[in-house]
Design a protein around this nucleic acid. Structure first.
Lengths: 202, 202
DNA sequence: ACCATACGATATGTACCGTATCGAAATAAA
DNA sequence: TTTATTTCGATACGGTACATATCGTATGGT
């Protein structure tokens, strides 16, 4: 334990009054709501406590800072989310997965991960937690899926799976943060097509 | 004037003592140094004032907040930077430009733009300023260059220039922020090759 | 019964923000 | 030369948020 990353409920203490599991959910819900309503930066921990109807110490006893709370709120929402969707053909499954991610980013999850990614630039611990709990699990799944595609002869052999991920998914994060255009399905399809066929002639 | 974006030196007042141009540079230098040494989040405006040897009011008279200072420090450094490098062949020019950008991001500029991009997620005015003063000028140049490539028959015709930009450049920003790997020339070449030839077989 | 902890509430000290004000200096206009 | 206006360093001020500490009560294990 104590991997260095941000923890959720920390280790359960030995004796004494047990923690009310209801409170955990109330805090995460309040935090997620407030991030959407007033934004991560403006939201104070005290505001979360008031909204959740708990004392501020109850929050500090469980999380070290604001980012850690939002991090837990995010993974609690998204963990049961869709990952890779089996489709009739291999390539379409990738495209649908990209669409599904874009759809999530258009909604609540988009606001949360935008705040987390930004805050992670200033907080190495949060960056580690985000990488371990969000980024890397998805990258590992994608890598094995792309390797399967190369074995099947659908994808060009000898490619670097990491680079494939970046070419396909980085644009989604880019638009999410830069706001150079909407994260529409049409945009996803364009990125998908360009990356698949290549942008060079022939 | 007053476009809503963050301003630099604001309009010069009518009479009175003129502003010392030396001070402007001292502040920007101090801010850039401090961002690198202790990080954007930790850096206080007071610390910038002390480092630059000026009063805090002298800073508030010129910039509305911390992000605006760093923004100016960034563009002051990078404006005379390389944009598109003419090379012997069309495609190699793109690749070299991507490498040049990655090189800048590996150094001082990388830390600055990382902080600016992150902070822009919480500050709509900064987001606008960053888009107008950094992102869009470069996108416009890239668009015209890619359109030229399509006219010449080097790039696949009928592509969306915006999507081309994203496939090529978003991975660079992605690595800069996610830290999933180094922004090496080898990585740039991989992204370039994958995007050019496509990752699908045939 | 006893102990350890959770819980809400409140107090505390620190840090930074953004504004206001001061006296001196520098310049343009009268 | 005089006067008005602005910059400049310095400092005081009120406000807000953070993170910790403490109090009295509640809740459960041993």
């Amino acid at each position: 334990m104590k991997t260095g990353a941000l923890q959720t409920a920390m280790d359960a203490p030995r004796g004494g009054r047990p923690r009310d599991p209801q409170i955990q959910r109330a805090i995460l819900k309040a935090a997620a709501d407030l991030v959407l309503e007033i934004g991560f930066k403006v939201m104070s921990i005290d505001a979360v406590a008031v909204r959740a109807g708990v004392g501020r110490m109850t929050i500090y006893r469980r999380w070290p800072n604001k980012a850690a709370i939002v991090m837990d709120a995010f993974v609690a929402r998204v963990d049961p989310g869709t990952l890779f969707i089996p489709a009739k053909n291999y390539l379409d499954s990738i495209r649908l997965q990209m669409r599904s991610m874009a759809k999530a980013f258009r909604g609540r999850d988009g606001s949360l991960i935008r705040a987390l990614l930004a805050e992670a630039q200033f907080d190495p611990e949060l960056a580690t937690a985000l990488r371990e709990r969000w980024t890397m699990p998805r990258r590992r799944m994608a890598i094995s899926y792309f390797e399967e595609g190369m074995r099947k002869g659908i994808l060009r052999p000898g490619l670097d799976p990491d680079a494939i991920i970046d070419v396909l998914y980085a644009p989604i994060y880019y638009r999410l943060q830069m706001g150079t255009g909407p994260l529409s399905d049409a945009y996803i399809d364009e990125i998908f097509d360009h990356a698949m066929k290549g942008i060079k002639r022939e």
